[in-house]
């Protein structure tokens, strides 16, 4: 057992004070760094810990609120749901169906206030989407005229963090998201919709923005947090 390990008396006292918990913050932090690399020091800390730990027997258990386990499970076990994709989660789609009606009303209001120009009807079909999310202040409106094949975006609130980019995705039905590229810093921006995605710009599609590393996701799939999303709707 580690009690046979000997270290110099100053370190021995630091190990004991660390285990007892009385070491002041600065000394505690520097000792913690040493524990990682110094095996003898580490085993003396472990020895003191093993001696003191029974003092905690007198502490009465206290039931923790159920929310702690819920948060833990969602925090620890969401890695698979990230792999499966938030775009496949029921919560995402439920949130969108609530947002969709509100989206139309807001988009109508934006036209009225000239926040975005009303779509020029060239005989094509016109689609709009309003993107927002609970976890960020990012708000965008988008419209698409299927004769011009251009998606016009206006960001009304929110900016990308330093060294991060906003990436725009289109999700058609149950397909995986397809990138429409990284948003420039301009508040108004037009993107050409590639031919293979033009059919997807129907009422069934959803536009979404994620937080991605500088230059966009390297994997071709969203990797960062979902910041804003909204269904595409024909008007």
């Amino acid at each position: 057992m580690s009690s046979q390990v000997t270290i110099d008396e100053k370190d021995e006292m630091l190990a004991a004070e660390y285990a007892l918990g009385t070491l002041p913050h600065g000394e505690r932090v520097s000792l913690e760094k040493r524990i990682v690399t110094e095996a003898d020091l580490r085993s003396r800390v472990a020895w003191w810990n093993s001696q003191f730990v029974t003092l905690a027997d007198e502490v009465e258990p206290v039931e923790a609120p159920a929310s702690v386990l819920r948060k833990l499970e969602s925090r620890l076990f969401t890695s698979t749901s990230t792999e499966a994709g938030w775009w496949r989660s029921l919560g995402f789609w439920r949130g969108l169906s609530v947002a969709s009606l509100a989206g139309l009303i807001v988009v109508g209001g934006l036209y009225a206030n000239n926040v975005i120009s009303p779509p020029q009807r060239d005989g094509g079909n016109v689609f709009v989407a309003q993107m927002s999310g609970e976890n960020s202040d990012l708000r965008l409106v988008a419209y698409y005229d299927d004769s011009a094949k251009k998606l016009r975006l206006k960001r009304t609130a929110g900016e990308a963090a330093e060294n991060r980019d906003f990436e725009l995705w289109i999700i058609a039905g149950t397909q995986d998201p397809v990138s429409l590229g990284v948003l420039p810093t301009d508040a108004i921006y037009e993107v050409d919709v590639p031919e293979e995605l033009q059919a997807a710009m129907s009422s069934e599609a959803v536009l979404a923005i994620t937080d991605e590393p500088d230059g966009g996701s390297a994997t071709g799939k969203p990797t960062g947090a979902l910041l804003a999303a909204g269904p595409v709707q024909q008007i």
């Binding site: 502490v59 009465e60 258990p61 206290v62 039931e63 702690v68």
Partner: peptide
């Protein structure tokens, strides 16, 4: 968790902080 929450709560003496710590 009840035992660990007891230990942590006794030290931190603040429920919200103890819940965060437990997590």
């Amino acid at each position: 968790s009840a035992k660990l929450f007891g230990v942590v709560l006794r030290i931190l003496n603040n429920r919200a902080e103890a819940e965060d710590a437990l997590q």
